[in-house]
Design a protein around this nucleic acid. Structure first.
Lengths: 332, 332
DNA sequence: CGCGTCTCGGATAACGATTTCCGCCACGTG
DNA sequence: CACGTGGCGGAAATCGTTATCCGAGACGCG
């Protein structure tokens, strides 16, 4: 079944009795070919079902009209962004190529992927949650939700600080005053901003910060559950917990269930991200939604602008977050 | 920012004072280079941050260790499959490249994409919901959920007929006897099988088929809503509706709401696919779940087998579906 | 000392396209 | 009739890499 080899431009040329140069001209509609010849070649192309090889073409010419989106792995976060880029790219004449290494996601993956593809399979790239911001690149690059904050290439992220504030404000409005925090890795900009939002909201509400209620996790579920158990075992335990991402919030739910606490009766929980799983949790999670699909769409717009030589109106786009109230929070 | 050009194998060779051939040998660990030279070249590679161009490499050699997954568009269905392939590929030494044209998804996209990439950027390809099954290809190919049924390349799909039967059986168990169907496009194999399951379930339950209760949609939401309105306006209207996919089921919910009917009090609704949106619907949709991530994972396994020359144990894998009962169905 | 053998590195031809430049032919004009 | 001109097609270089072959030394052995 896999015997027949690709039909190349040479096959077309031979069949049509012209040179490969002429066929290339016909394909790219360039000057120097008579009507009759062009028609004949075109007919052969259809008959043979020829399509020019993206690989060979890109090796020689600078433009491919393909945009690369580079992710460490295809998980819920990045696939949501992928959906946004996909709908935004329709009708632009560009095509989309999403690339991921073997899940290893060793640090520095962004530079390696970029290096492997930019010569030049792709005209520009979107990096999703890169950990290292390479200042130098031979093609335009846009970073979505970089872990180290905006620096280097143009960046798109969500308003983490304000989002976190609205989450905590929501809890304050419900009458909570002892509000715990399960933070994320402190080396990540987004985690830092969410903690900042937490502090700011408490300060504004005139609630004194209790350092004992602040724990630092790593955005993963199990560690968050352990930290939550510590918080809930406190003599004067919190009545609400803000987790820096949804996975951590799910960990909090696990811990509460273990300890026989009912959410939201005994404990209110708010997460961050609004991943699909958060709606399926029991109870469905109140969380802060990041407009992932919009972020993807904006990235495409900016990138195409960059590729076509337009200066970006701004090198850092920050999109608003939105509080999504479900059933894991309740008036005290 | 975009000034520095790629560092090529030539740069490495010049810097190391050897020929490009030698550098290539070092990179690919082939015989014919002394320890000392290899170490020196390796050091230069690290310093310069060189990565071989996937494009150039693939043009010349047959193996790239990259698997392509070709989709018409990145929407919920295909991104779920993508997640499955992504986790299955970890640790196999292969990398994943997902490709989509500009959303146009004109018929025949599968052959065009394949043709553009197979020369040979990718060692094998997974086609998601292809409409045309090209018998010939120069690389191993696996089709997931082909619209025309298994023929040609090895195929992976869900058990549409049994899934549909279990959906309708569920309604019958709840005491429903007037059960409507919003079908999918009749030219698609999956739609045909789901309708067949519907008929079979009714027959087994000894319920006479009422042709008036069967409408043919196209898997989209709005058309389904219109058809549902027709069904619900019938003198002797159905008490339950089975929609051939979730989007259609959402359309049914729209129609019911418009007509002031409460789901599930006045009408039970079952969908098919279990896309994430179905859990977020109001009320959450009872539906038939396709193991999309599993399907993706199986596709990767089979494809790697094919690439490495193993004969597939079977050319057609059919995975089981599962009924997911949520809140859109109720005892009559 | 001569000759085969081995090891290591380089020169070179592909791979499939694009692109630049050049030559040929027909035609119009002085 | 000679010469410039414009239109059309082809030859060849190039992109970055791999793979095949070849040659230059070094070394061992008779």
């Amino acid at each position: 079944m896999t015997i027949p080899t690709r039909v190349t431009i040479h096959d077309v040329a031979r069949e049509a009795g012209v040179s490969v140069a002429t066929v290339s001209k016909v394909i790219n509609g360039r000057y120097g070919v008579s009507r009759a010849t062009a028609a004949k070649v075109q007919a052969i192309i259809e008959t043979l079902g020829y399509e020019s090889s993206l690989v060979a073409r890109s090796l020689r010419s600078l433009r491919t009209n393909v945009i690369g989106i580079l992710v460490a792995e295809f998980e819920p976060f990045s696939t949501e962004i992928l959906k946004g880029t996909s709908s935004a790219i329709a009708g632009t004449g560009f095509e989309l190529l999403a690339y991921s290494g073997g899940g290893g996601s060793r640090p520095g993956w962004e530079r390696r992927y970029l290096s492997r593809l930019s010569g030049t399979l792709i005209d520009g790239a979107i990096l999703v949650t890169p950990t290292v911001m390479t200042a130098e690149a031979s093609i335009p690059v846009i970073a979505i939700d970089p872990h180290l904050g905006p620096s280097g290439p143009p960046t798109i992220d969500a308003d983490n600080a304000t989002g976190a504030m609205s989450a905590v404000q929501h809890l304050v409005d419900l009458g909570h005053t002892r509000i715990g925090l399960i933070g994320g890795r402190t080396d990540l900009e987004s985690a830092r901003l969410r903690e900042e939002g937490y502090r700011e909201a408490l300060t504004r509400a005139g609630i004194a910060l209790d350092p004992e209620l602040i724990r630092v996790g790593d955005f993963r579920r199990e560690p968050a559950a352990i930290l939550a158990r510590e918080l809930l075992a406190l003599p004067h335990r919190p009545t609400a917990i803000f987790a820096a991402n949804d996975l951590s919030a799910l960990g909090v739910l696990d811990a509460a269930k273990d300890m026989g606490l009912d959410v939201p009766r005994d404990l209110s929980v708010v997460g961050f991200d609004n991943i699909p799983e958060s709606a399926l949790a029991n109870p469905p999670l109140t969380t802060v939604s990041q407009p992932l699909q919009q972020m993807g769409a904006r990235a495409i717009e900016m990138l195409i602008g960059l590729i076509e030589g337009r200066e970006p109106e701004s090198s850092h786009v920050r999109l608003p977050t939105q509080l999504v109230v479900r059933s894991s929070t309740r008036r005290l």
